[in-house]
Design a protein around this nucleic acid. Sequence first.
DNA 1: GAGGTCACG
DNA 2: GACGTACGTGACCTCT
Length: 947
Amino acid sequence: MDEKQHLYLVDGSAYIFRAYHRLPPLTNPAGTPVGAVYGYTTMLWKLAEDLHKADGPTHLAVILDKAGTSFRNDLYDQYKANRPPPPEDLVPQFPLIRDATRAFSLACIEEDALEADDLIASYARAATLRGWDVTIVSSDKDLMQLVGKCGTGGGCVDMLDTMKNLRIDVPEVVEKFGVPPEKVGDVLALMGDSVDNVPGIRGIGPKTATKLIQEHGDLESALAAAPSMKPGKLRESLIEQADMARLSRVLVQLKEDCALPIPIEDFALGQIPREPLAAFLEEHGFTSLLRRLDDGKGSPGPKTQLNPAKPENQAAAPASPQGGNRQPLPSWPAPDLSAYACVQSMSELQQWIARAFAARVVAVDTETSALDAMRADLVGVSLALGPNDACYIPLGHGGSDMFAEKPVQVDRAEALAALKPLLESDAVLKVGQNIKYDLNILARHGIMVAPIDDTMVMSFCLDAGRGEVGVAGHGMDELSERHLLHATMKFKDLCGTGKKAISFAEVPLADATRYAAEDADVTWRLHRLFQPRLVEEGGMRVYQKVDRPLVPVVAMMERNGIKVDRERLAGLSSEFATQIARLEGVIHEAAGMAFTIGSPKQLGEVLFDKLGYKGGKKGKTGQYSTDQSVLEGLAAQGAEVATLVLEWRQLSKLKSTYTDALQAAINPDTGRVHTSYSLVGAQTGRLSSNEPNLQNIPIRTEIGRQIRDAFVAEPGNVLLAADYSQIELRLAAHMADVPALKEAFAAGEDIHARTAMEMFGTVDRDTRGRAKTINFAILYGISRWGLGGRLGVSADEAQAMIDRYFERFPGIQRYIHETLESVRECGYSETLFGRKTWFPRIGSKNQAERQGSERAAINAPIQGTSADIIKRAMARMMPALAEAGLGHVKMLLQVHDELVFELPEGDVAAARPVIERVMATAAEPAVKLTVPLGVEIGTGLSWGAAH
DNA sequence: GAGGTCACG
DNA sequence: GACGTACGTGACCTCT
């Protein structure tokens, strides 16, 4: 008949304490801490996966402690008396443990006046008597007394420690206690238990207790033998505290005859139903588990941070121009620069590290000798654990002046070795302001910092667009002044500027401590402010789902860098130089005088005053405009000089910005060019690239394209470029719900040709080009004058085209109207993933300003959604490649709708479909698009050849 | 430091 | 009646 029954008894209460201390302080979309719940959920998941395995559970119940006292308190009023209250952020998780258990449709047992251990012992006994095997899921040492117990029916007990993935049977117990399980109670009675406040015998620890029981067999024999022992402390303790030991023996004895509230048959496991489990996983943002549930595959996935899954439909917060300060400041003391510690010994450092482990959240900042994360040397590290509770650890001060005395510092390698476990611990959240920089600095020292939060990125998810025009608005100095009403020390005041500037390594320790520790302190405080705001204001979703996972990915791309062919660039530079010199001569001759061609002012005067060409002045500065369109106009009039100047400008631009600058940007250590991406640079959520900017390498002209050929792969490798095709138009078709455009994309049509057909009834080079212009005009927020100017038609004609467009593509006009209405009402626009961009000037009385904001507001959801999608693709890319055995493929660059990789030529065939799939499905499962995302992939020995 | 110009998506 | 006319960036140059 029946196969062997196997009952799993899960010690839930003990588990969540361990999970709490082992996992980072995660929160669910509602802001409730759920780190321990997550750990608990994954543990149940693992057990459920064993369901059909040979030794897996046929029956399972979770046993929980119920708050209150037990019979042991009647025996000993001090029992568990000195147990500290559970941590504040664990308390709200207790009820969620029951929810989680119910979500798995599992039984959950708790009884007043009974401890979980006693219920477990009683159930274990009942089951073994019936001949069932029992596995106790716990690592509690008290429960080890039960291991190996076999009932008359033939069932036996073992234990399973899911965290260490360890089976505990009799040999393991013997290894731990030196005695078999039935003697464990005697050992425990002697050694006591400080956590439960079981007294034991003072002065006797595990070693002595084990030895005594090994020698004498059991507690009573050991106590009886005491008078004949050799005189000493041990003998006296045993005699004097014999009663305490006997009391302890009773306290540690498990009660095996409790009434069983639910019969064991009721614990039978079936297939775990999808609901209510899916709803629970979704509610708490356990999306990786949710995905596995839907995949129906059980392999443990990557540990993911939590993501909200709910759309944000809360009422919009009133728009405030600066953002932030609506809530009162917490009652923190103002930053006190004299309160910070300078850590100059390993023992002090060890104390800070221990306290950081206990605090579980630590703000971290690194100080370096320069701003380039790929070249700078580490000079020091600062940590903050709370307001004014911060320190600076100098590691590389002094040294440039060989006569000056070097300040006392801990050895850098030793300090980093001590910091590494903290910085890499899953259980401690590391908070930084622009932590990507610190990630890169520390990665160069072999430390892979995780998990992280970034206050700069958090600020961006809250307040993008809110700062003054042209100001990034997410720098620490600004955030401190805006949110903490505190002016930070300025780097300039410490190190100076320009030629007189000194390295941070030369700053005296006292000043360096004040500056560096203040940064960490401020970062810690900002984190405390932003965390609840992200939840309340609905920014958590995009932060956790899109931006935070991207930080380490972008850091890695920056470290990867890309190889450029220096000789090729140098060749182009000298070619360009020759041409420029030749053109200069010709231009000066044509002008009849020598002048600075690169000066728009001088050029304007030469063209319009001296040579007498017709052209308008421009506004405020009273200066002639000489930009490309003006010069092209002159050239069309037959002005030879204009043509020459255009050519000169192109070559000067290419030489100074690219062929010269890129050679200088090659890192001497790596031989590659490492850009730096800003995650908060563009209001819409796009990345930006700087020093050097690798997002504007020429491609549109043949002469500029040669520069792309200088971006190359290492020998044996190729570059692979993967582009989203027309992603913004596709998103516009989806978001505005335009049937004709959606059909065209679904059918894989040439979208500009389709537009031309709809607009003009015919497709040729001319109408397709005009249609393309109109399509872009739509994305950018259209005006009749703007479109007319671009197409070279009157505003009235342009308006007629716009009307026709709206007619042929219904949905667009509605989208524009609804977007603007919503922005006027809420103050911000939103992407499909919930990224907000604020438009404080949408209601401006200045028409130009207001209309500018309106155009930007029409564009932001589209451009921003596109940015969200490629960011999601980037975050998923390396895990997906690694799963396909392609973990060595390097992701190098992102250019808004393009990703560039470097990989061995032989791996192209394998990598191509993975990259294609990750990019094409990047919106899922959060957003279901009604248009396909097209991805085009090319490879070659150079970036130019990969297109 | 501002303004003009132009490289990219 | 004038405004100034496409969205988003960053780098380089000149001139104050």
